[in-house]
Design a protein around this nucleic acid. Structure first.
Lengths: 351, 351
DNA sequence: AATTAGCACTCCATTAAGTAGAGTGCTAGT
DNA sequence: ACTAGCACTCTACTTAATGGAGTGCTAATT
C-alpha cells in the first residue's frame, strides 16, 4: 500500500509517541489528561481524546475497557519503532562492561555464553545467542578411532579449539592403523580449508579423480564424506536469564509462562524465528503476534545477526514482554552483535 | 533420643497414614469427619479430633487455620515414608516403557537424557540425572594439538565414544610432531586403564622413574599430568521437565518459582544435594526443609544412586512438591536407577 | 477410662452492595 | 479547530452478610 497512514498528521504521531513512551515506562494505560500534560503540544484532554479515537480507529492503540486510558497495539509499537523512536545512546557503564567482557579473544563457545549472559543481565530479560554456523569454520585436524562393528568415531577440530565428534558407519572393517593413516592423509590434503570447501572438494575428488588414487586414499575420502555429509546443522543456541521473564506481570498466567518455557526447551520454533533474522542485516524486531507464534503473542524479540569476516554466522537478541524499552534495547543489541562478531576468532585464515 | 514416638499407638499411626494418603490424593486439608469415614477403624469424628490434637502436639500434622482440617508436616511425611508407606508395584505400562527405552545399549550420554526424560514424563515432575563420574571411565585414546603460545589442546576419548577436550598450558614450546609423539607414547602405556589409575600412575612415574626416561617421555608425562590433574569434576546433570513444576499450586508465588528455576541454573546447590545421595545406596528422600535449602522448602526430592559394575557412578531422581505420590515415585525411581545402571556400558573392561 | 454426642465458636470463601476515582464520548460553546 | 462541561461507564476497593467446614470443649454414655 502506498500510504498506510492516511489521516496521521504530525500531531497525532507526536501524541502516539509520547503515549508509547509513557506506557513503556509506567505500564499503565495512558489517559488523556496525563497525555495532555506530558506532551509538549499544549492541548486540552478533550482534544487529545479526539485524536485518540482516531488512533484507535486505525488500530494503533486500544483501550482495555471503557474508562481506562489507551495502550499501544502491536501495530502501534511497530509504527513507533519504525518511525518515531529516538534511540538512546548506550549507558557508559554498560558499554564499557560490554567492551570488557567481549574483547578477550578466548574460546569461542565461552564467548557465546558471555554474550548471552550480558544480554540477559543488562536488559533484565532473556538473552539468546545462536551457535555460529559451522560452514564458515576451518578444519584443523581430523582423526578416526575404531569402535566395535565397523562403527568409527570421528573427531575433528575446527578453528582454534573447537572439538566435534560423531559416529559413522564405515563400509569396510578398517583397523586402527588403517584409520590412523586415513586421518593423516586427510589432514595433509584438507587441513586449513573451510568445512564447506572440504565438503565440495571431497565430492569432486570422489567423482573425478578416482583413477589417480590408491585404495587407501579412496577409503579415506569416503570416510571424510560420511563424516561431513549430514549437514549436521545442529542448530542450537545459548539461552540465559529465562527466569527474568517470570517477573513480568504481562506474561502472568501460569499456563502462559509454561508454554513459553516449553518453547525454549523445544527449541525448534525459536530456531525458526531466529533463522529469519539470519537473512537480514542489522537489528530486526518481532513485536507480539508478528512472530507468528501464538506463544509469543505478548512478547517481543529484538535480534541482530552477527558476522565474522563480513559473513553472517549467527543471530543474537533478547526476548521480553512487548512492553520493553525499545529505545535502549535496540542500540544495545546492535552493539552487542557487532562486538561479538569482532570478538570471535576469524575463521577462514589458515595458520 | 531413644523413643521419639511416645504416645503413638497403632491407632494414631493408622490415622496418620490415612490422613497423609488422603491429603496426597486430594490436596485438601483433611478434616475429622472425612478421616472417620475413610479409615477402617470405626471411630467418631470427635475421637479422631482428640488423636489429631495429639499428632499436632508431636509436630506431625498442622492446621493452616482454626477451622480447616489437618495437613502433614515434613516430620509427618517423614514418618509416613519411613514406617507407614505401602509401596505400590509399578504400573505395567510404565515398566515396559522403561525397559524399552533403557535397554538399547546406545551412547551413554543419550541414555542419560532418555532416563531424565522418562523420570519427568512418567512422574509429571522434574527429572534429574547426574553425568556418571569420570573416575571410573577407561582411557581409550589421547591426543595433543598445538594452539598458539604454548597452549595445547588435549583431546581424549573414554569408554566407547565419549570425547573430552581441554586446553592446557605446557611448560615448553613443543612442535606438532613432538606433541604427536607424546600422544602416541602416552597411548601406548596408559591406554585401557581407568582415568584415576592413569592419574596415579602419572604421579608415580614422575616421582620415581625420572632417571629411566628420556626427555621426550618426561615431557609427555608432564603433559598428561596437566591434562588429567584438575579433578575436572565438571559435575553436571541433565534436568528435564522443569516446566512441569509450574503446574503445582503449592509452588505458586511467582517469586518462589523463580528462585527454584534459578537454583536449577546455578546448579551448585542441586549438585551438593545430589552428592549426598551419592554416598548412600538405594533410594533416598529429602522432604521439604530437610534438604537444607530454603528454596526447596516446599519440595521433595526422591533420588537413588545408580551403579555400573557395582560401583556407584551417579545419582538420579525427581523433584516435585512435598505433596507427591511417594508410594509410586519411590519404587519408580528405584527401578529407573537400576535399569540405567544396567544399560550403561561397563567401563573398566579393556577392549 | 475411653469414647461419643452436642454445642458454641472460629475462620474462610463467596456473594452482594456501595463508593471513589479515572477516563471516556458527546455536545455545545468559544 | 479547539475546549469546557457533563453524563456515563467501568474498575478497584471496601464493607457486610451468609453458608459451610471444622475445631475444641464439656457432659453424657458405654
Amino acid at each position: 500500500m502506498a500510504n498506510n497512514t492516511p489521516d496521521l498528521n504530525d500531531r497525532s504521531l507526536q501524541l502516539l509517541k509520547t503515549l508509547v513512551e509513557r506506557y513503556i515506562s509506567d505500564g499503565q494505560p495512558v489517559g488523556s489528561r496525563l497525555l495532555s500534560k506530558d506532551s509538549t503540544l499544549n492541548l486540552s484532554p478533550a482534544t487529545i481524546r479526539n485524536v485518540m479515537a482516531d488512533l484507535e480507529d486505525l488500530g494503533l492503540v486500544h483501550s482495555p475497557h471503557t474508562s481506562a486510558g489507551r495502550i499501544p497495539t502491536s501495530s502501534g509499537y511497530r509504527l513507533f519503532v519504525d518511525s518515531l523512536l529516538t534511540v538512546k545512546p548506550l549507558d557508559h557503564q554498560e558499554l564499557s562492561r560490554l567492551h570488557q567482557n567481549l574483547s578477550t579473544k578466548d574460546n569461542d563457545n565461552q564467548m557465546i555464553g558471555v554474550a548471552s549472559r550480558l544480554l540477559a543481565e543488562i536488559t533484565q530479560m532473556a538473552g539468546i545467542v545462536t551457535i555460529p554456523k559451522r560452514e564458515l569454520t576451518c578444519l584443523r585436524h581430523i582423526e578416526f578411532l575404531p569402535l566395535s562393528h565397523q562403527r568409527v568415531l570421528v573427531i575433528f577440530v575446527t578453528n582454534e579449539q573447537e572439538v566435534h565428534n560423531k559416529v559413522i558407519y564405515s563400509e569396510k572393517n578398517l583397523s586402527a592403523s588403517e584409520l590412523q593413516q586415513a586421518g593423516a592423509y586427510l589432514n595433509s590434503i584438507y587441513c586449513g580449508q573451510s568445512l564447506d570447501a572440504v565438503r565440495s572438494a571431497v565430492l569432486k575428488d570422489l567423482q573425478e579423480d578416482q583413477v589417480r588414487m590408491n585404495q587407501a586414499m579412496l577409503d579415506a575420502i569416503k570416510m571424510a564424506q560420511l563424516a561431513f555429509e549430514s549437514n549436521d546443522n545442529k542448530d542450537d543456541y545459548v539461552l540465559t536469564g529465562e527466569t527474568n521473564l517470570m517477573g513480568f506481570s504481562e506474561l502472568s498466567s501460569r499456563n502462559h509462562l509454561k508454554q513459553i518455557f516449553d518453547a525454549f526447551t523445544q527449541k525448534q520454533d525459536i530456531i525458526h524465528l531466529l533463522d529469519q533474522s539470519m537473512k537480514a542485516d542489522g537489528v530486526q524486531i518481532f513485536i507480539g503476534e508478528e512472530s507468528g507464534y501464538q506463544v509469543f503473542e505478548q512478547c517481543s524479540l529484538v535480534t541482530s545477526s552477527y558476522s565474522v569476516n563480513n559473513e553472517v554466522v549467527g543471530v543474537l537478541g533478547v526476548i521480553g514482554p512487548t512492553r520493553m524499552a525499545y529505545e535502549k534495547i535496540i542500540p544495545f543489541v546492535d552493539v552487542t552483535a557487532k562486538l561479538l562478531g569482532a570478538a570471535l576468532n576469524p575463521k577462514t585464515t589458515t595458520p
